[in-house]
Write a protein that binds this DNA or RNA. Structure first.
Lengths: 208, 208
DNA sequence: ATGAGTACTGTACCGCGGGTGCGGTTCTCA
DNA sequence: TGAGAACCGCACCCGCGGTACAGTACTCAT
């Protein structure tokens, strides 16, 4: 593990993003004021605009950072799973278990998905932010689609299986599970949804 | 069918709610200004406050109306399905097909789920709105849980099946599917997710 | 040590948005 | 025709996003 040493400016920028992300996931983007962000970050408004051109720039940086972190997280989980099994199906099932366990280990539950949050406020953002958001889901789709294709080679599924939809279902169940957990204030709901997806994948690739 | 005749006041109120709902699903609640609502509705600010105490009252009315309409819609679909089959599993599968078809028939895709939208901005709302939002999901859970219990009586599932999670999965897949469809601007994604859920239900209750 | 960035602070200002208050007006319908 | 329903008009408040720009303290390579 290489630990990047952040410069003072980078550290402040990260702090702003941390604070903004919590607020945005709780109150929405328009509902989050710059004043509350700078107050909590202990800086002035001028300080904020030194780091970000405007609020939209903040939104973009938040999203980009979220997608980057997710990329690192999932690459890691897939790598772990691949080390535990050579078989594509078993590896994928292990991955889903690891994913569910990780979500279980969040005592306050998953804080929320930036992508989902932005989808319900997309008219607030510029075109490039919306495109970046869509790209985030496409990355998920491709990542899962790759795995499922490799599984389907070894475990021929029924002819009518919609593999693209099955790949997208990982995103859908994750985002839907987060909504369930947040709304009902029950952190266990998200990991249980992931395990439902896992059970489906297991069933759908079992010989009939 | 009884057609309620709306008084002028009720008609205006409904128009405000229609306009507000579209705007909120596109820009979030805080991102939607009263000025744009009243401009589109062709009324003044005073007119707005005649119908709603404040913005939170508007939020509550929107959510209540959304939940009521959903209730009517799903009761209708379940009734249709029950008329087509006595068997609880077949009826449920028919219901899911009807649901998916209905979502397919929306040319511009599903406009969005108020419940999901509110979850990502819940700190903007009063306690009673948040409670109402949670109640909406609980109603879904119970509705599906009832159906699944009746199915499980006739088609004994594997012992490890998490029926509560399977019931919640309907909400999760619907909300997740809506997010997929909205984000990637592809209306077909939502109905396909519903059909994935349907396939899972079918598999999980099939004798092994 | 010093000067050139880097990372801010301080102040002043603008227009929009949510919200309040309250008096006046028009429309509807028994 | 008169009483309530359904608004309009206007004045005012504060918070928020954003702009502009001058000044300052800290950091670090030469």
């Amino acid at each position: 593990m290489t630990v990047r040493v952040l410069s003072k400016g980078e550290a402040t920028r990260e702090r702003i993003l941390d604070i903004a992300q919590d607020a945005v996931l709780a109150k929405g983007f328009a509902g989050t004021s710059l004043d509350e962000i700078i107050a909590e970050a202990g800086i002035t408004k001028s300080g904020f605009f030194y780091h970000f051109r405007d609020k939209n720039d903040l939104a973009k940086a938040m999203l980009q950072r979220y997608l980057d972190r997710e990329e690192v997280l999932f690459s890691g989980l897939f790598k772990q799973a691949d080390e535990l099994s050579e078989d594509p199906l078993h590896s994928f099932l292990i991955f889903l278990k690891l994913f569910a366990d990780l979500m279980s280990d969040m005592p306050n539950g998953h804080p929320g998905c930036i992508v989902a949050s932005y989808v319900y406020q997309d008219h607030l953002f510029s075109q490039d932010v919306r495109a970046l958001n869509a790209e985030g889901l496409i990355v998920w789709r491709n990542r899962f689609r790759d795995r499922l294709d490799r599984i389907a080679e070894r475990y021929p599924p029924r002819a009518d299986l919609d593999i693209d939809a099955l790949a997208d279902m990982a995103s859908a169940v994750a985002d839907g599970g987060i909504i369930l957990s947040k709304c009902l204030r029950d952190p266990s709901l998200l990991p249980r949804q992931i395990l439902q997806y896992r059970a489906y994948v297991k069933l759908v690739f079992s010989p009939a």
